[in-house]
Amino acid sequence: MCAARGVSVRARFELSAKLEKWYPRHMNRGYREMMQTLRKVDCIVEVHDSRIPLSGRNTHFIRSLSSLKPHVIVMNKSDLMDIRYQNKIKERLESDDSNSRCIFVNSLDPSAKSNGFSAILPLTINLVRNSNRFNREDFNGYNLMIIGIPNVGKSTIINKLRNINLKASGKATTVGAIAGVTRSVLERIKINANPPVYLYDTPGVLEPKVDKGLEATMRCALCGTLSHQLISYEITADYLLYWLNRRNNYVYVDFLGLDGPSDNIKEVLIKGSVYFNNFIDYKSQESGELIRRPDMEKTAKELIIAFRKGLLGRVVLDDDLFS
């Protein structure tokens, strides 16, 4: 059995230093804009990656909303999660706040009508109608705000709702694979005609401080909700190796063409690079000759992409938080 090493001390130090500088600069502006827009909003729509249902929640923002607005929790990418945890996740999130309702969807499923999307609008409208809505006498449509950490599929869900309910083609908001594509609160987007429903898109907002610890941060990075300029693929792959080994899950062995399990990320990536024929050439400063070495970062990236596509199996990274 492989020992569980986790992320190296050096990586922990470097990551913590980067996060301390990055969070306030990138998140405070978006948070302020969202709070300013909140007075116009009737219901909050939280979007999360089903694989990180607890690590991925912005509890700081949710705490400031829970007593003010009803909200629907949309657990996206449900096709990638371990289905055994679905009921546990739903019960946990709804029990935390009696005004919340949880729905599981897969935003990339072409048959979106049948996988939970058809329930989102009726549920939000029902929650609003049964709450103390402001300016009810001046009704000119329902205003929703969609929130969540970066790269969980908020923009894709907005476009899906618009396409399904308005039969509108094209994209009303930008969709990107890079964490944090949406940088500011946009104009409200119409997603339904009768009754009129509008939705404010928002920037992906993470915790102002890393108060959930490095473990939660690494789980978010593994699901692509943090930029790889902040956390490298190699460090992220190191955490994935640790997470899999702790659960005696050695699916990576065949994927990387290894002889057996290992807890040494350098060894794993070197052997994986040879298996994938991932090499990089550089010129020796001493001899001037070209030297070929394994491209570990490229192999780490391929491993992470395979995980995110579900090629390493369906998982809930927060499984230990539901015991």
Rank of each mutant, 00 (worst) to 15 (best):
L240Y: 03
W243R: 02
N245Q: 06
Y239A: 11
R247K: 14
G257D: 07
Y242T: 15
D254A: 13
D238R: 12
D263W: 04
L258P: 00
N249G: 02
L241P: 00
I231E: 01
G257T: 03
L240H: 04
D254F: 05
P261G: 09
L230K: 08
I235S: 12
Y252D: 06
Y239M: 10
L258D: 03
Y242P: 01
L256N: 02
N245H: 05
I231W: 00
R246Q: 14
L258M: 05
P261I: 06
Y239R: 06
P261N: 11
L256E: 01
I231C: 04
P261M: 09
Y250G: 09
P261R: 09
L244T: 05
I265S: 06
I265V: 15
I231V: 15
E234T: 15
V253L: 05
F255T: 04
V253G: 03
E267Y: 13
Y250N: 11
R247N: 13
N264H: 11
W243H: 08
A237F: 02
I265E: 03
T236I: 12
I235H: 05
L240A: 10
V253A: 08
G257R: 05
R247W: 06
L256C: 07
S262I: 03
N264F: 01
Y242R: 06
Y252C: 11
L258H: 02
L240R: 03
Y233P: 00
L240K: 04
D259T: 09
F255G: 08
E267T: 11
Y239L: 10
D254V: 04
A237P: 00
N249D: 15
L230T: 14
G260F: 03
G260V: 01
L241N: 07
V253W: 00
T236N: 08
D263N: 15
E267N: 12
I265G: 03
P261A: 10
A237R: 04
W243C: 04
L244G: 06
W243F: 13
A237C: 12
K266N: 15
S232D: 11
S232R: 09
L256V: 04
Y239H: 09
Y233L: 07
R247Q: 11
S262C: 12
G257I: 01
I235V: 15
I265T: 07
Y250R: 07
F255E: 10
L241I: 07
L230H: 06
G260I: 00
Y233G: 08
I265N: 04
N248Y: 11
S262Q: 09
D238K: 12
K266I: 14
K266E: 15
L241G: 06
E234G: 10
L244Q: 12
L230P: 00
E234Q: 15
S232G: 11
L256F: 01
N264I: 01
R247E: 11
N264Q: 12
L230C: 14
N248V: 06
